[in-house]
Design a protein around this nucleic acid. Sequence first.
DNA 1: TTGTATGCGTTATCAT
DNA 2: ATGATAACGCATACAA
Lengths: 344, 344
Amino acid sequence: MLSSGVTDVEMPEKLTIVDIARKAGVSIRTVSRVLNDSPFVNAETRDRIKSIIESTSYSPNSRARGLASNRSYLIGLVHDDPNGLVLDQVQRGIVDVCAAHAYELVVHPCNLKARDLIPQVLQFARRSRVDGIVVLPPVSENGALAQAIHAAGLPAAGIASVPVEDFPLMIVVNERSASAQVASMFYGKGHTEVGFVSGPLDYRSAEERRRGFLDAFERFGAPLAEDKIAEGDYSFQSGFDAGYQLISRNPSISAIFASNDRMAAGVLKAAFKLNRRVPHDLAVVGFDDSDVAGMLTPALSSVARPMRQLGSEAAKWLIDTAGVISKHETRHIDLQIILRESLP
Amino acid sequence: MLSSGVTDVEMPEKLTIVDIARKAGVSIRTVSRVLNDSPFVNAETRDRIKSIIESTSYSPNSRARGLASNRSYLIGLVHDDPNGLVLDQVQRGIVDVCAAHAYELVVHPCNLKARDLIPQVLQFARRSRVDGIVVLPPVSENGALAQAIHAAGLPAAGIASVPVEDFPLMIVVNERSASAQVASMFYGKGHTEVGFVSGPLDYRSAEERRRGFLDAFERFGAPLAEDKIAEGDYSFQSGFDAGYQLISRNPSISAIFASNDRMAAGVLKAAFKLNRRVPHDLAVVGFDDSDVAGMLTPALSSVARPMRQLGSEAAKWLIDTAGVISKHETRHIDLQIILRESLP
DNA sequence: TTGTATGCGTTATCAT
DNA sequence: ATGATAACGCATACAA
């Protein structure tokens, strides 16, 4: 079976549970007990076996394990184009937890706009036989997908800005309230004439951020006029266009909140073109606290989501419940605004 | 075995090869042949079985498959902190290929500076039993790790700026020559007084980029003086410091090449602080063509690596060779410079 | 507390 | 061209 290629040197022969059992002079059943932390093992026996396992580089074959126990020890991650920083952080958060439980992380980048998104994701789950999946926004906002996942009996943790039914674990990132906080900061610092760059309104996150910000200003008795609101599509260019429009049409504007960092970067550029100095003439705040925030000139203040922690939480829940889901659970996460140069 | 939790609705019963065999009125051996594209099957029988598989949502259990064939159908990705864009692109590139071959991608973010990096990576490979791994820079630059991986008999594809021995497939990204191209562009556009911001010289990539750029200017007969070279650590702040120093000490400088986009962003900021207009007074070029490049003001020209394609190539090789490595192979990849506003 | 034996869903050897 | 059947490495019902 093994190849005879040139690289096929004496690679350490694969040990099995049988080898360990023989070395320890016990049956494989006992070794299995030790591997699975069964309490019904003589302490001394357990220690002996454990030390043997330590000294050899034995690692139980998770495929065999999964085959016997009907689990895969795999967690899936389904996402589409979050900014890179988010992706890295989430993955690390998940792996942090996985490593401690001998689980692995399988990733499935997908295309939110694809017609066959749902069958694709389901097929991924079937093929890989992951024990559960973590779904990131904006994919997580797709209710039909969540429903399909649920119907397939696949444990899933959704991370989104609003509760999405059908996710057994729903981690709701409180973007609306964070956006309201941005409004408060603006208002508190004396910005009464402000602009808002919305994301595409078919994204729930965009809607949340919008409502949070606009409603707050209404409560302050200073609702934004139509011409102080622009809709972008989360792209840099759309942010530039929106910013350019807002600023040139409303010379009195002293602050702009953009629904993500990309668009905020576009606003900064528009301000530059229009000779507005940030933050002197115009304060700007973005959303995501992505990689770029600190690299822009001026550095961008932004709303941060603790993605690594969220990844860990989701993974921990999936592993702990081990497929036995007794009831759905919703958690709410509050966000923090990272202040940099663009909002003094 | 199955839980009785509330979510445990009628989930589509799992079909096995036995079910398919029965439906088709053949033995499982024949179904297995079809699944593995064996030529020794009657065309008609094959079609019948295939259509049955299509109509049911049967998907072979890769765990059982792996157990029997001693493969996992898993590809591992080992990396540490490339910029997020790189990560997403590489993962998509790998998954593109994996999906077509019923493989999955398992990720292992690690810490390059960790003392136990090597045992950690090896343990990851043992535990997950991946069939092969892709190692991204800068982790791939660690020769000792490559050696250990090789000694463990684990098929691996390394992506780095220089050939690293012991990687059966070595994809060398020609960063030196790309950097020389940047030098040529500078020189061709009349920039003779230029600055260079190097990465930390214990990174091979930093060394390559440095050599490429500096050597080129030597060949032009315009070698850079010491005070036109600064060393950063790939961070934004170090780029700012380096840029500030270079510009203030050398008022005549008309172009700066920074070894990555983060530092280039810092240079842009330094230029801004020192009232140099980019690109009018100062041209700037970065490296990575990361997410930020297009979002900076002015937009940053940068050297791009085709990470998605590289991911695909690496995965394809790992899957095609299927563990049977007859000889080591080295491929060279040329890069492209993406021109934006910062280099007119 | 420990061991025996069966089965998980495939692949692959050996028949036929 | 097709079919029994023994692995593969482990978990677990059942015995002891």
